[in-house]
């Protein structure tokens, strides 16, 4: 029994992504990620309304993509952000930009799931596309970090296929800038 546990300890816990995510699933997950990224601009555009009401079916669609992605990697859950208590048909997602910001950051983490340079660059483009949708939202609030973020994404795009460490740094900067924007947003809300 002890030996068994020792062996287990030597092997270590299974990497959820590598353990459960086969090549096919991974491909499917990236496809879902791409589609979800395409959904972001439209959904963020709608969130300009005070209560950001969304049809439940649309959110279910988002959740379906999430499930596809989640088999291979982390992704936020739309149901954690949605409030469907008022109606069976319509749900409110008052903090949707936060959801997409989380989604975007999760996408950046996906870069490292593949060794393919072109796939890594593709994921960068997916994340950047999501960011561009968020940027529309954020630029309305005059966050000065957005210009910096574009630079960081360009740098990430340049480095991801040639210099992994530089790329990781860029990702860290992006995350940091995201955090700043989030905090600025909270402060602004509190200030109101």
């Amino acid at each position: 029994m002890v030996l068994f546990f020792l062996i287990l300890a030597a092997i270590g816990p299974p990497d959820p992504a590598s353990a459960a995510c086969s090549a096919d699933r991974q491909k499917n997950a990236i496809k879902s990620l791409t589609v979800a990224a395409d959904l972001a601009p439209g959904m963020l555009k709608r969130s300009n309304h005070a209560f950001s009401p969304f049809p439940r079916k649309r959110l279910e669609k988002v959740a379906k993509f999430e499930a596809g992605i989640r088999e291979c990697g982390p992704v936020p859950k739309i149901w954690d952000y949605a409030d469907c208590s008022a109606s069976d048909e319509v749900c409110l997602v008052p903090d949707i930009e936060r959801y997409f910001a989380e989604f975007c950051l999760s996408s950046l983490d996906w870069i490292w799931f593949s060794d393919s340079k072109s796939q890594r660059r593709f994921i960068v483009r997916v994340a950047f596309t999501q960011y561009l949708a968020l940027e529309v939202f954020w630029r309305k609030n005059n966050f000065k970090e957005t210009r910096e973020l574009r630079k960081r994404f360009r740098a990430l795009n340049s480095s991801v296929s040639i210099n992994e460490s530089a790329a990781r740094k860029e990702i860290a900067r992006i995350k940091s800038l995201f955090k700043k924007i989030e905090e600025a947003g909270d402060l602004r809300k509190k200030g109101k």
Binding site: R125, L132, F153, N157
Partner: peptide, 15 residues
């Protein structure tokens, strides 16, 4: 291509 233009990724555009 709009994200690629913003990223200035000429290779990706060619592709």
């Amino acid at each position: 291509t709009h994200s690629l233009i913003l990223l200035g990724d000429a290779d990706a555009l060619e592709e």
